[in-house]
């Protein structure tokens, strides 16, 4: 008889620490690392929620009370508040609906009614990528159901569910208003026209690779620009490092305690960047000129997220302003005062 096998030692993985109760919990998409729901959150006074993130420093997001404060006294604001909660947490946590009804004049019945009425609200945690397969009339007759079925098979989930790795959420919608493109699939705002079951695998792969790698050829709205620092007028172009096949724009960036280089695509309309350090989503980053070390910061706020804009002089006249928030696509092109 051989030795009795001892209990196999499991690799000491990081244990998920659950902090249940009113103080917070585990779940949702961490708004710091924007990844799986292993990060925990706890509620703090002053209406803030603190995220204990695995990858980054702990982070604060506004809690329900803070969000509701903005809309105080405005009638019909329940949908706006719900939208903001969903944008911050990826879904509508049931506790927060209850909190919302306590913080505002709306009863829980009204809040719950609105949250379940609109399809864009989700009471269950959603994945990183939302895949919407159109099953409207035009897409339906052109084979939308087969596409939906192929997605279900490939992802191993049914419509309305989220994959176990919290990567994909699959949903079917009744019309996306893009019937000419049917059958159409939308992944996180990216439209895939004339989809058939054979194309499904490619869409999933491309989503995993990163949807921001856009195809440049054949799109007239995308063109390269050359920029320089507004302070020292030194060109910021880096011909030695290509992004999207064109010389990149190099700046120095800093956020938190991190400083490093950032290279941006010089194509106007492309949002591809390469960075020395990964920048957490929604972080506001400080940009510096790598030559004169002046901070690139305009007095204008981003029209979309109110973060400060970063100015750069365009060769040939004009100023381009880009939003300093990671993930925000707010930008402006200013030719002698005329906004484009």
């Amino acid at each position: 008889m051989g030795p009795i096998p001892t209990e196999e030692e499991k690799p000491a993985g990081r244990q998920r620490v659950s902090k249940p109760g009113k103080e917070g919990g585990v779940g949702g998409i961490c708004s710091t690392c924007n990844q799986a729901a292993s990060c925990s959150y706890r509620l703090k006074n002053e209406g803030l929620v603190i995220w204990e993130c695995d990858l980054y420093e702990s982070y604060e997001t506004p809690g329900v009370a803070k969000i509701a404060e903005k809309y105080e006294g405005k009638p019909g604001s329940v949908i706006s508040i719900l939208e903001e909660i969903q944008a911050t947490y990826g879904y509508l946590p049931p506790d927060m609906l209850k909190e919302l009804s306590e913080a505002t004049d709306y009863s829980l019945v009204d809040v719950y009614g609105a949250a379940t009425f609109y399809k864009s609200f989700s009471l269950k945690p959603r994945g990183k990528y939302l895949v919407s397969v159109c099953l409207g009339t035009a897409c339906h007759v052109r084979g939308g159901p087969a596409v939906a079925k192929e997605f279900e098979r490939r992802l191993g989930i049914r419509a309305g569910e989220t994959t176990a790795d919290k990567e994909f959420t699959l949903e079917t919608v009744n019309c996306l208003g893009a019937c000419a493109l049917g059958p159409v699939v939308v992944v996180e705002g990216h439209y895939f026209p004339q989809v058939n079951p054979e194309k499904v695998e490619r869409i999933i792969d491309r989503t995993r690779e990163g949807l921001d790698k856009i195809e440049i050829e054949g799109d007239e709205r995308i063109f390269p620009i050359e920029v320089s620092c507004p302070r020292c007028n030194h060109s910021l172009m880096d011909a030695g490092h290509l992004i999207d096949g064109y010389p990149s724009i190099r700046v120095t960036l800093s956020f938190g305690h991190t400083h490093g280089w950032l290279r941006m695509s010089s194509l106007y309309g492309s949002y591809n960047v390469e960075s020395e350090y990964e920048i957490p989503k929604r972080t506001i980053v400080n940009f510096f000129c790598p030559y004169c070390h002046a901070e690139l910061r305009a007095a204008t706020a981003c029209p979309e997220c109110q973060a400060p804009m970063v100015p750069m002089i365009v060769h040939g006249g004009g100023i381009v302003l880009i939003c300093s928030r990671r993930g925000c696509k707010g930008h402006m092109l200013d030719f002698d005062g005329a906004n484009i």
């Binding site: 009863s107 829980l108 019945v109 009204d110 719950y112 009614g113 009425f117």
Partner: peptide, 25 residues
Amino acid sequence: AKAIGFRERGERRSIGTPFDIKSEE
């Protein structure tokens, strides 16, 4: 009281308490 209300819409529209649990109201 406002303990019950409409939920969802269309075919799935129903009347009941939020989350289908006993209402505090």
